[in-house]
Amino acid sequence: MTEEQGKFGFTEFAENWNGRLAMLGFVIGIATELITGQGILSQLGLM
Rank of each mutant, 00 (worst) to 15 (best):
M1I: 08
G9C: 09
Q43W: 04
M23N: 09
F13N: 14
K7T: 04
N16K: 15
F10Y: 12
T11L: 02
E33C: 05
T11E: 05
M1L: 10
G9V: 06
L34T: 05
L21V: 02
M1Y: 09
I28D: 12
E33Y: 01
M47P: 08
F8M: 03
Q43N: 09
G9E: 06
A31I: 01
V27L: 13
W17G: 03
G19L: 15
E12I: 07
E3Y: 10
S42E: 14
F8R: 12
F26W: 06
L41I: 05
F13A: 14
G19D: 07
T11K: 08
T36I: 03
E3G: 05
F8H: 09
G6N: 12
F13S: 14
Q43S: 07
A14V: 14
N18K: 15
E4F: 03
F10N: 00
A31N: 10
F13T: 13
N18E: 07
F10T: 07
E3K: 10
F26L: 12
I30E: 04
G25I: 00
G39F: 09
V27E: 10
G9Q: 08
G39L: 07
G29P: 00
G6C: 01
T11I: 02
Q5E: 10
E3M: 09
G25N: 05
K7Y: 02
M23D: 05
A14E: 08
T32E: 08
R20P: 00
G9F: 05
E4N: 14
S42M: 08
I35F: 12
R20I: 02
A22H: 02
F13H: 14
A31H: 06
A22W: 01
L34N: 09
N16Y: 08
A22E: 02
W17N: 12
L44K: 02
I30P: 00
F26H: 09
E33W: 02
L34A: 06
N16D: 14
E12M: 11
F8A: 07
F26C: 09
F8Q: 08
L41R: 06
E15D: 11
G29T: 03
F8N: 12
T11M: 01
G29W: 03
I35N: 11
M1Q: 04
L24S: 07
W17C: 04
M47E: 13
V27H: 11
F8K: 10
L34M: 10
I40D: 00
M23L: 07
E3S: 11
L34C: 10
F8G: 08
G19N: 14
Q5H: 11
E3Q: 12
Q5F: 04
G37K: 02
G19E: 06
A22Q: 05
R20E: 00
G39Q: 06
G29V: 03
K7S: 08
L46E: 03
T32F: 06
S42F: 10
G39I: 09
E15S: 15
G25P: 01
G19P: 00
Q5V: 01
L46Y: 08
V27R: 15
E12F: 04
W17L: 12
L34H: 06
T32K: 11
G45P: 03
V27Y: 10
F10L: 08
L46Q: 08
G39T: 13
